[in-house]
Computed example of a mutant assay.
Amino acid sequence: MSTDPWQLLDDAGKVLVVHAHPDDESLSTGALLASLTAAGAHVELVTATRGEEGEIVPGAIAEDEDRPLELIREAEIDAATARLGLAARHVLGTPPALAPGAAPRTYRDSGMQWIREGLAGPSASAGSDSFTHRPLEEATEDLIALLEHVRPDVVIGYDDEGTYGHPDHVRAHHVTAAACARAGTVMLEVSSAPEPAASAGFHRRDHPGTAEAVRAAVDSYRTQLTVLGTDAEGIRIRHVGGQDDLVALRTGLRVRA
């Protein structure tokens, strides 16, 4: 098997990408996914949680809105994935991303709190149905069921740092790695570092021509962020917590050994 992740992607006809929450697909891999679909690849997405614990940008939801946040975020992710050109999206624990014979199950957003500098953990209110607290084996079996349904040539997931260490991202990494190992499917890991190190096995690629699609996808998440503008580096955003960030138009990937 090639150790060049981009060669594997270039040769792939069908790709599955695994993320933790609505908006992660656009923030972490938007340019990558837009470039893949523009090149004709069949790309499907599975999201572990519905983002129930997300904060809300003030004024983003009308005062007379009676839908719960997870339904509002479902509409946001539908809009974002359409902008990126994805062929289908799934929710872990819901068919076809459900182990045979199992009753449908919900992996609730775990929320996040900083345990100490540089180490994140689930929020204190995370219950037994949260993604980080439900048995790892359940989520792994559900993802294997989806792999058998989709039969992707490659799977794209987080590296072991889970972007910024969100516990749901880290959990998604472990679930994806376990499911791919058992199913015999190639896993490609997205670098958490903005400038991935070749010494760690990462190979970087720019995604020219994707800015418009990525900006539209990111802008779908009005409850979570505000788009500030676009420049040569990517899409400038401000998160609900006030942190400014860049949605880059490049990706570092490596093949999971």
Rank of each mutant, 00 (worst) to 15 (best):
Q7P: 03
Q7W: 12
D11R: 15
L16S: 03
P22G: 02
A34G: 13
A41C: 12
A41Q: 13
T47K: 04
T49S: 12
E52C: 10
V57Q: 11
P68R: 10
E70Y: 11
E74N: 06
A82F: 05
V91L: 10
L98G: 06
A99P: 01
A102P: 11
G111Q: 01
Q113T: 06
R116K: 09
S123G: 06
A126P: 09
S128P: 08
H133L: 12
R134H: 10
L136S: 15
A145F: 00
L147D: 00
V154H: 12
V155W: 04
Y158T: 03
Y164R: 13
G184S: 05
G184M: 02
L188M: 08
V190W: 02
E195N: 13
D206V: 09
D206N: 10
H207M: 11
P208D: 04
G209R: 02
A211R: 03
V214W: 02
V218G: 00
D219S: 09
Q224R: 00
T226V: 14
V227R: 08
G229T: 02
D231F: 11
A232W: 03
I235L: 06
H239Q: 12
V247R: 01
L249Q: 07
L249F: 08
L253N: 09
L253A: 07
V255A: 06
A257T: 13
